Computed example of a mutant assay.
Amino acid sequence: MAENDANHDQHPTAELGTDRPLELGLDTFGDITVDADGRTLSPPEVIRNVVEEAVLADRLGLDFFGVGEHHREDFAVSSPEVVLAAIAGGTERIRLGSAVTVLSSDDPVRVFQRFATLDALSGGRAEVILGRGSFTESFPLFGYDLADYEELFTDKLDLFVRLLDEEPVTWSGATRPPLVDQTVQPPAAGGLRASVGVGGSPESVVRAARYGLPLVLAIIGGDPLRFAPFVDLYHRALEQYDRPRLPVGIHSPGHVADTDEAAREELWPHYREMHLRIGRERGWPPMTRHQFDQAAGPDGALYVGSPETVAAKIVRAVEGLDADRFDLKYSAGTLPHEAMMRSIDLYGTEVAPRVREQLARAVAA
């Protein structure tokens, strides 16, 4: 059995971000997109566009850029660290991380080494968000049994947390060979920042608190404030495990345009097709335009609209969930690169200042 326990010392990165102002970031899964003429782009074209999008985000002063890991034909990025390394060379200050790294079907030692290398290349800006992912293609691809879904993540997370201490590790578990007084190289530039991405499972929330890891909530449907009990559970679990307050982040999809109508009209056909494609695999009924408009409404999980509308929704979610970071998942199916670049520009130049101004006024009041 693993040699870690609930009282293991908190790794040094867990304290980062607890007292700083709200972070505003962006996430992408590197969705395969179309150009202005409707031509489907190749994965290499999409990956180069992701780098361009991240460079723009850095230039606009945003705080974080996350790239998801997938192993299927509708997403271009299977190795986020490689893409992030390319981004590191063209950016100066923005933090760079995964959204998420599928730890269950990877090796914790290799994950740490790759992100420590990214941390060196970026001057200490690397971050890894660990999760189980919402797709399962990586399991058969890398020879894992889906029947071991829960054990794989729990066991590998236990080892990864030990690696964050950057000390010789002695560890044994059920899913990989043991380590005996093993030092893992290279070390991170200043301690690797790590967090856990969850979809709302109480067990996952408590696990993050037990290991002293910040929490990122993936909120893709319903009223975001319905996640308030999970945030409360996380804070209570941190107290139980004698942990300090740790950051809570929100990851949600959205699209920004000049007006609410323009944003919805731009996103709808691409979001509909993405939902239909995934729905065929999972048995979902097709999404109606009414359902989409509801999700894009004031209480929905889609942050779609003008800068004023999106800023107001972010403030509502951040205040309601006591969050420390909000990441807009700005890519959605085949939504063209040009539309995403415009959305990023509006998010950085108009949404972010509005959010920070409204939160500052609330604090002052």
Rank of each mutant, 00 (worst) to 15 (best):
L328R: 09
G173A: 06
D31S: 10
L192F: 13
Y330C: 09
I94E: 04
D9R: 15
L56M: 13
G90Q: 12
R226P: 00
A362W: 04
D165S: 07
A54V: 04
R272Q: 15
L24G: 08
L24H: 07
L246M: 14
A147W: 00
H270P: 14
L84V: 13
S195H: 10
L26C: 02
I32G: 10
R125P: 12
P80T: 05
A189D: 06
F160S: 02
D58K: 07
P286C: 01
L16V: 13
P202V: 00
V83T: 15
H255I: 01
P244E: 07
Y303G: 00
Q10I: 15
F160K: 04
G25T: 08
V256C: 06
A257S: 14
T101W: 06
H270V: 09
I250H: 02
R280Y: 04
V128L: 08
E81W: 05
Q358R: 15
G283P: 13
P269R: 01
A14K: 02
V102A: 04
V51T: 12
A57N: 12
A2D: 14
D35A: 02
R93H: 13
P187W: 10
G17P: 05
D327K: 08
K329M: 12
R193K: 11
F115N: 04
P298R: 11
G300E: 02
D158V: 00
R245Q: 15
R289S: 03
A301S: 14
Y211W: 12
M1S: 15
I219Q: 09
P244R: 00
E357K: 13
P21F: 08
H337A: 05
S79Q: 09
S195P: 03
D327Q: 08
Q185R: 12
R245W: 07
L359R: 10
L22S: 07
S104R: 01
P80L: 06
E15W: 09
D299K: 09
T40Q: 11
V206E: 14
G17W: 00
L157Q: 04
F75C: 10
F112S: 05
F29N: 10
V206G: 01
K313C: 12
T288R: 04
A317G: 07
P229I: 03
A257R: 12
R282P: 05
P224N: 07
R236Q: 12
S78W: 09
L346E: 11
L215Y: 14
R114M: 09
V351I: 12
D31Y: 10
